[in-house]
């Protein structure tokens, strides 16, 4: 589904990603872990098409297409979804209006008919309940005045409503208490399916207790220094990034 090959990228003259190779197949859940400044969020942003990054080398293919060639809205249309680390407040745009516009934009891209109002409302109500979100949030502007936890749950709620093929979760666990974490994880787990892939970007192993990954990759200084199964996350928790980095460094 997603093939990243030798990806180099940075901001202005500063190199951040220094040769990422990663393949994600349908049905898989990958965790990308790494310390602050390792390039995790940069990778997530580049996948979603945020401007301001220069890709200097390498390729990213998504469903057989050159992902880097597509605008952010085309990527969404192809089935990519980024849950933002810092969801953006948009005063004046109602959550309902936004969500409906998003669903229909993606459907139009795929040549599907627009969703009628009652199907939409039913879908929205069901997913809000699943993510323990207060329905009154729908009457508010997008993310405006939401608590930190509400913002993060709102991202997963959008994910659930938009049903993408590939979901990238950028530090969705940061700032969540344990109960909110469980709700978020439950929402994500409900979306696991053989047709869908999920990439969880996180600093801590904590979230991975609830969203159990098939693969774990350790990102340090713009490179994946180790890959393994879910047990790698536990090892990281015990030994810390420093040691993994040393081991990996010694191996090169």
């Amino acid at each position: 589904m997603l093939q990243i090959k030798n990806l180099h990228a940075g901001v202005e003259d500063k190199a951040i990603l220094k040769g990422i190779d990663l393949t994600v197949n349908a049905g898989e859940v990958h965790a990308i872990m790494g310390p602050n400044g390792s390039g995790k969020s940069t990778l997530a942003s580049i996948l979603a098409g945020k401007s301001g990054y220069d890709v200097t080398k390498g390729t990213v293919r998504f469903q057989g297409k050159d992902l880097l060639d597509l605008g952010p809205e085309e990527r969404a249309g192809e089935g990519l979804f980024l849950a933002f680390q810092y969801p953006v407040e948009i005063p004046g745009v109602s959550s309902t209006y936004f969500l409906r516009a998003a669903i229909n934009a993606v459907r139009r891209y795929r040549g599907e008919p627009e969703m009628d109002a009652s199907t939409f409302m039913k879908l929205v109500r069901e997913k809000m309940e699943q993510l323990d979100l207060d329905p009154s949030l729908l009457n508010r502007s997008v993310n405006e005045g939401f608590s930190g936890g509400e913002k993060k749950r709102n991202e997963i709620f959008q994910l659930a409503v938009l049903q993408p093929k590939l979901a990238v979760l950028d530090e969705t666990d940061s700032g969540l208490d344990i109960d909110a974490l469980k709700v978020v994880a439950h929402g994500v787990n409900a979306l696991r399916s053989p047709e869908r892939a999920i990439v969880v970007v996180t600093h801590y192993q904590r979230l991975l207790n609830f969203i159990v990954p098939d693969f774990v990759h350790v990102l340090v200084d713009g490179r994946i220094v180790r890959s393994g199964g879910k047990e790698l996350a536990l090892e990281l928790e015990e030994r810390g990034y420093g040691e993994i980095e040393n081991v990996a460094g010694a191996g090169v």
Binding site: G71, P72, V88
Partner: peptide
């Protein structure tokens, strides 16, 4: 805000008009 809307599938012109 423009990137946020576009990342959810809204075209650039539509997202700009909305904002």
């Amino acid at each position: 805000a423009l990137f946020y809307l576009r990342s959810r599938g809204l075209g650039k012109a539509e997202a700009e008009a909305m904002l």
